[in-house]
Design a protein around this nucleic acid. Structure first.
Lengths: 151, 151
DNA sequence: AACTATTGGTTGTAAATGTAACTAACAAGC
DNA sequence: GCTTGTTAGTTACATTTACAACCAATAGTT
């Protein structure tokens, strides 16, 4: 049936990578979406604040490689959910340091635990060596030449 | 600075996988979007038709793991671009076999070449063995238990 | 101080996506 | 033939995202 036998979608890395990423994202969504009504970007922002501690929106943009509008909206949503607070800096009132509330920290702790468990579950499908290689390759690919989008 | 040192976003597979997938997708977009004004789903549908030959929308849904509405819209778009034609089956007029036009095939050939080149470029960042492991792991992950979405 | 450029962040609007409800064709049971 | 169920595909509407324009604060220049 195949006409251009020289190229199977499964062998095209962007395609395969997307399939894999989507499979995992969709599965993990259940946790932050189902339990807390959060969107993916909100989860990412919370995740970063939880992992690294307080920081400005700009820092999140750079670290998480998210566009500032996405972060802006996610922060607003997390704020109305009372998961974080913003504190303006006097020395430069353009910046606002974001910080998880106690509630936000509890949610982070819960999701962090779920993430850990999920991660282990996925890793169980491969050997330790394979996981090492996978990680190394993904990091390399993630750093692959991309257009500016941290604006 | 890190507070919960036990978990770095970079170590969370869904996250890392997403970063990697997005980096590649964004980069490859230039080809199908910039040159032909195609959306990602359109490119995927074209890709599948090009690789495997004519098939129905339903078959594309299953193979590409895309929801039927996405495929429906992509097919409509590709049709107005004159990249494919649809031929109803007499024996079951619910089905329509989709087939690339000559123009569609030329576009596929061009993008297929670009995809090949891009794939090689990415693979150049790793050894042959690494690429093998990566591929194997990704296929395994892509098949990971997911909710039904080929409906 | 005034003038421009840059930066952090928000908002408006169009495009894209997800979900559910729908239509049309067929199939099975009666 | 008529009802009920299923399947392929479309459409309508709500949610999400992308992109550009915008605002306010600061920095740099004169």
């Amino acid at each position: 049936m195949r006409r251009h036998a020289e190229f199977d979608p499964q062998d095209f890395l962007p395609y395969l990578l997307n399939q894999a990423a989507e499979a995992l994202s969709l599965e993990f969504q259940r946790h932050y979406r189902g339990q807390y009504g959060m969107l993916r970007t909100e989860w990412r922002v919370l995740f970063h604040l939880g992992c690294y501690g307080e920081m400005t929106a700009k820092e999140i943009c750079v670290r998480a490689r998210l566009h500032k509008t996405k972060v802006s909206r996610a922060v607003a949503a997390l704020q109305t959910k009372r998961f974080l607070t913003r504190r303006e800096l006097e020395r430069d009132r353009r910046h606002a340091v974001l910080q998880l509330t106690a509630k936000g920290n509890r949610v982070f702790a819960d999701l962090s635990r779920a993430a850990h468990a999920f991660d282990s579950e996925v890793r169980a499908a491969m050997t330790h060596d394979e996981a090492e290689v996978l990680h190394r390759c993904l990091v390399r690919i993630a750093r692959f030449e991309t257009v500016q989008r941290t604006g």
